[in-house]
């Protein structure tokens, strides 16, 4: 089971781009992924406690260890590799 958290800043350009890119990447994957989207402008504390300050930030909680990917995730292959589906 893969658990992901995406931290975004409301409708900021790169955050929106990241969300779209991630959704597209996940759609192409044939595995089950749990995704939680956190808007830091609404839940700053959650971001703070996760050690996330810059957005958009994708956090893979499981499988361990926790990994982070910063940015708009324009490179879908890189995103897929990060999620761990194609390794």
């Amino acid at each position: 089971m893969i658990s992901l958290e995406l931290f975004i800043a409301g409708t900021a350009a790169n955050s929106s781009k990241a969300l779209n890119n991630l959704k597209r990447a996940l759609a192409d994957l044939e595995i089950q992924v749990e995704l939680a989207v956190v808007d830091v402008l609404h839940e700053p504390k959650r971001a703070w406690e996760s050690g996330v300050l810059v957005t958009p930030m994708l956090v893979r909680r499981t499988p361990a260890p926790t990994q982070m990917l910063l940015g708009s995730m324009d490179d879908v292959t890189q995103v897929a590799a990060f999620i761990g589906a194609t390794t």
């Binding site: 931290f7 975004i8 800043a9 409301g10 900021a12 350009a13 790169n14 955050s15 781009k17 990241a18 890119n21 830091v40 402008l41 700053p44 504390k45 971001a47 703070w48 050690g51 996330v52 300050l53 810059v54 957005t55 958009p56 930030m57 926790t66 990994q67 982070m68 990917l69 910063l70 940015g71 708009s72 995730m73 324009d74 490179d75 890189q78 995103v79 990060f82």
Partner: peptide, 25 residues
Amino acid sequence: ARLRPGTAISGGFEIEGLLGILAAR
């Protein structure tokens, strides 16, 4: 506010998230 070691980077980001978190703090 350092990126965790091993943090990968793909594409652009924005500072608004950081500022939002700071505003709350």
